[in-house]
Amino acid sequence: MSALLEAKDLERRYRLRDGRELQAVAGVSLTIAPGEALALVGESGCGKSTLGRLLLRLDDPTSGTLRFDGEEITTLSERRLRALRPRMQMVFQDSYASLNPRRTAGDALAEPLRIHRRPGVAARVRELLGLVGLPEAAAAKFPHEFSGGQRQRLNIARAIALGPALIVADEPVSALDVSVQAQIINLFRDLQARLGLACVFISHDLAVVRQMADRIAVMYLGAIVEEGEGMAVLAAPAHPYTRALLDAVPRADRPLPPPLSGEVPSPISPPSGCRFHPRCPIARDRCGIETPALRMTGTGRAVACHFPLVSEAGSGFSS
């Protein structure tokens, strides 16, 4: 199966007012197959949100290439992109901010349909409300009359209105309470299966990511440090950072292991060599000098580490 979206060496630099440069995304390559769910995981400042925007060309990469459905879209003009927009949509964390408070839910859903001159707007709006589990009467309500979970359903309905092939969702459930969060996670998985949607979920929450995505890519300071099948990566992380991230999650069934020291360094002046080496519990001299490349280690797992924690087979620990 050919890739739906293919990013190669994507890089995004921002020039700061004082002349320094911030490398938000530092050469990321990834592919997304049709109908696949990929998650970008990492802490704040790792570049996952910027990458998400780059993938939809909502932001322009400084370098690298991006292909959508076989077509090169890296430098496509805004006008030509507009024709592609119905096929790639975004869902944001703040369900309220992304809706116009003075327009009803029905209007919000009808708008993209009208812009792209789709027939049967009214019927499609009803169908969309049904798809995301909102009653038909919701069409006449204003955003503030909904709860956070319902508003997020509405945002999802709007994102799928034009029948996209790809949705990028930036922290779609992190503002929601646990009980409502579970509903929205389930909704995403249903829609994916029913509509054959490819999704990129951006999240900081490993448990949420494990539930929502087939494949995960762990990011640290703008680069992917580990990528692979979600359940496998979380069952046996190969990169020490993935391990640390997993260990840091407070859980009922085990005491917290000693946490990583320090905090994520500034992306303005990232450490030399492996960007994780100053905080890495198993770093050696080589890590501060030589930048590890993201290498495939067999069973669909890629790791950017000189001393990965699991062997080629994907189980057991290396020496």
Partner: peptide, 18 residues
Amino acid sequence: AAMPPLDGPRPAHLPAIA
């Protein structure tokens, strides 16, 4: 139950509270 698990089998559906 509504918390997504970090290990073990992955449920097809989380038991959400309606």
